[in-house]
């Protein structure tokens, strides 16, 4: 059964067709990578899937529910979470607070119990904090928990963004270039962490530039060029697909 079904999804900006008639499915529990040259429409696709852009045409079905017309927060509550290409942390909050924001919808007790500090409220806050800490541990940044997130080194900020996305307890995680700007060693570590997420039962859609990363960890790959899907398959097929080599890999490897 498919977790996510995208059917003939298009997004036009005025006359510009950012993505055109994109169709694909994702099974649960895999890593799907989306690759393509700059301006191929990868981030636009992400924005359409997560409610930050309204698609011009087409449908997005997640867990058998049409979500293409929903707002970003509603989509997140249904179980899709994402990171951003240019890191978007709550810079003034501490690292643990950043992750606790993601636990927002998991905390039930409202305004009044916060004022009277009911036992329910205290318990929920404690659990939220504990869980958030676990997510930090999962990404290996628990040492920074009480630091102001804006002061973190670049790599740790990327990891925090992923921890925060996980903390919404979404089943589908969209990562927009998680290894951008990282050195080979950091990239290897990040790859291991992403693989680890798959073991935890998460489904991951990844935008990535680094071919080594993509070929190494993807279960499936989709190739976009000029807003159109030109290929889809397992890494081996993609590597040997002449259209892909022409559009993308050719320029990268030579």
């Amino acid at each position: 059964m498919s977790l996510l079904e995208v059917k003939a999804l298009s997004k036009h900006f005025g006359g510009i067709r950012a993505i055109e008639e994109i169709t694909f499915n994702t099974r649960s529990g895999i890593i799907l990578s989306i690759i393509g040259p700059n301006g191929a429409g990868k981030t636009t696709l992400f924005n359409c899937l997560t409610g930050f852009l309204r698609p011009t045409k087409g449908s997005v079905v997640f867990s058998e529910k049409e979500i293409s017309y929903l707002s970003a927060d509603k989509i997140n509550l249904l179980g899709i979470s994402r990171t951003f290409q240019n890191i978007r942390l709550f810079k003034e909050m501490t690292v643990i607070e950043n992750v606790m924001v993601a636990q927002h919808s998991k905390i039930r007790s409202g305004f009044l119990s916060a004022v009277i500090r009911s036992s329910n409220f205290k318990e929920e806050e404690r659990i939220a904090k504990e869980r958030s800490f676990e997510y930090l541990e999962l990404l290996g940044i628990e040492a920074y928990a009480e630091k102001i997130s804006g002061s973190l080194p670049y790599g740790a900020q990327r990891k925090l963004e992923i921890a925060r996305a996980l903390a919404t307890e979404a089943t589908l995680i969209l990562l927009d270039e998680p290894t951008a700007g990282m050195n080979p060693q950091e990239t290897d570590e990040m790859m291991a962490r992403i693989k680890n997420l798959r073991e935890l039962g998460k489904t991951i859609i990844l935008i990535e530039h680094d071919m080594k990363v993509v070929m190494g960890i993807s279960d499936r790959i989709i190739v976009l060029d000029h807003g159109v899907k030109i290929a889809e398959g397992v890494p081996y097929d993609i590597k040997n697909n002449p259209m892909v080599i022409e559009a993308y890999l050719g320029r990268e490897t030579h």
Binding site: A72, N76, S81, R88, V101, R117, A128, T168
Partner: peptide
Amino acid sequence: RVHDSKTGRAWISLREDEIASSAMGI
């Protein structure tokens, strides 16, 4: 007390980055 609850955190996340805030389900 409201500041130190999920409401307060939601407000501050709004101030810091509205887009990321809505991506967190707020």
